[in-house]
Amino acid sequence: MSEIPTDLHYTSSHEWVRLEEDGTVTVGISDHAQEALGDLVFVELPEVDSELAAEEACCVIESVKAASDVYMPINGVIVDTNQALVDEPEIINSSPYDDGWLFKINPADEDDVGQLMDASTYEAELED
């Protein structure tokens, strides 16, 4: 069973979302998603300063046999990306919720985060 931290929010496309104290929002992919993809070999990060709408594809994650889009969980502007992943995409495999974060957003509306799934709803969805 994959790990699903209870303090995060989730999307049905398997992104996790954390509202930080400074008002930015950090996004990554869930433990379940990294496990399903297998050993990751490449990440194409979004461009900083791009303004994107919720559910827009903004980032690509590649394993040997699959390439998967990562979607914007909420409306907002990209303010930072995890450059460590450029050389070591495997960090996502080893630490999906901490060192393996993908990008940070300046949200159009902070309250959007609360509208996403909580851990128990996401867990229930995975079991289906």
Binding site: V41, K65, A66, A67
Partner: peptide, 12 residues
């Protein structure tokens, strides 16, 4: 680098 290719990415 096969993940770029049509048999995996299909319409993308």
């Amino acid at each position: 680098l096969q993940a770029r290719e049509q048999h995996i990415r299909r319409s993308k």
